[in-house]
């Protein structure tokens, strides 16, 4: 790291810039996909909103107001520029601006995701590194079966089991996560403890598996064998030789598996009645609120792409061949 030449830095900057541009192009294409699918079978949004009893003139007037009479490509262009400017449009179902609906929900989901990350990362590191350094032992095999089973477990089973254990049997925690702005910090923590735990368990399994793979990969390298032959004690090999080299791949694995937060949040927020963005999106599907649905989908996709990008960049920075 210390002996980094300026050409190496330039090289990395160039690769990173390329990835950032590529991520934005992907996001642009994703927006086209989402807009196309959600606008493909509009039935007739105006007709649907007004119901069967509306007169032809009323429907026509609303169609005009909603801009449904313009060509699809023009509508897409307008929608995209508005979103880039930070104005995702108007929800005719809820009768208020989409930005207003989202702004009350987004912080809740961010809090949930942040806390779940805080719980899951240390746990995954512990499980992953333990499994890797005890490769082939019973410990490793049991952890493998445990994480393999957790990965395939439906999120609502995990959440249900937590509710049964902590709120039905033990009566420790509430099973419904009501979050109000007036609640004190400790009240809020208590009410979102179960959603956070459930979400953390959902992501921890995948994260631990990828961490194990990353550390195990380093343990196979010749420099580990060299250190062993020199008589360096194994704990020191792991801490001083393996871990610094594994940091890049491990962070990469973390970022990749945090993308499981999105899918997990949808189920977890719904089961606990948590007022977040994911449960909002589910409601938007039920009420066929396309404007709201498109915005929620775009936020989730942007967050997902951002995490992939972070994973990518960390992998690039960690690759010593690119630093030459």
């Amino acid at each position: 790291m210390a002996a980094q030449g300026s050409s190496g830095v330039k090289n990395i900057a160039k690769i990173v810039a390329k990835r950032v541009v590529s991520a934005f192009i992907t996001l642009f294409l994703v927006s086209a996909v989402i807009f196309t699918i959600s606008g493909l079978l509009p039935g007739d949004a105006a007709q649907e909103l007004l119901g069967q009893s509306a007169t032809q003139e009323q429907v026509e007037a609303l169609r005009e107001e909603m801009g449904l009479n313009r060509p699809a490509l023009v509508r897409y262009g307008d929608w995209l520029t508005a979103i880039v400017k930070g104005d995702p449009g108007y929800s005719y179902v809820a009768n208020m601006p989409v930005s207003q609906i989202i702004s009350t929900r987004l912080p809740n989901t961010l809090l949930l995701a942040a806390l779940a990350t805080l719980v899951s990362v240390p746990l995954a590191l512990l499980i992953g590194i333990t499994a890797a350094i005890r490769r082939g032992t019973t410990v490793d095999r049991s952890l493998n079966i445990l994480t393999l089973s957790l990965v395939a477990m439906p999120e609502f089973l995990i959440a249900t089991l937590f509710v049964l254990a902590f709120s039905v049997k033990l009566l420790w925690l509430p099973s419904i996560a009501l979050v109000s702005p007036e609640a004190t910090w400790s009240e809020t923590m208590r009410s979102i403890a179960l959603p956070v735990l459930s979400l953390a368990v959902v992501v921890v399994a995948q994260m631990a598996r990828m961490t194990r793979a990353a550390v195990a990969d380093q343990l196979d390298r010749p420099y580990v064998e060299m250190a062993r032959l020199k008589g360096v004690p194994f704990p020191r090999i792991v801490l001083q030789h393996v871990m610094p080299n594994a940091v890049g791949p491990v962070i990469n694995a973390m970022a990749l598996s945090l993308s499981y937060l999105m899918g997990g949040a949808i189920i977890v927020e719904t089961i606990f009645n948590y007022p977040g963005l994911a449960s909002l999106m589910v409601n938007a599907v039920t009420s066929r609120d396309m404007a709201l649905l498109q915005s929620c989908a775009m936020i989730f996709c942007a967050a997902y792409l951002a995490m992939m990008l972070v994973a990518d960049i960390v992998a690039i920075l960690a690759n010593p061949r690119l630093r030459a």
């Binding site: 996001l27 699918i37 989730f300 997902y304």
Partner: peptide, 22 residues
């Protein structure tokens, strides 16, 4: 390129949008 775009949409989000539309 098309598949890379589709894979960048989390599966549950993608399925929700499809269900809403169809």
């Amino acid at each position: 390129r098309a598949m890379d775009t589709l894979i960048s949409i989390p599966s549950k989000i993608f399925a929700l949008v499809l269900v809403a539309a169809f």
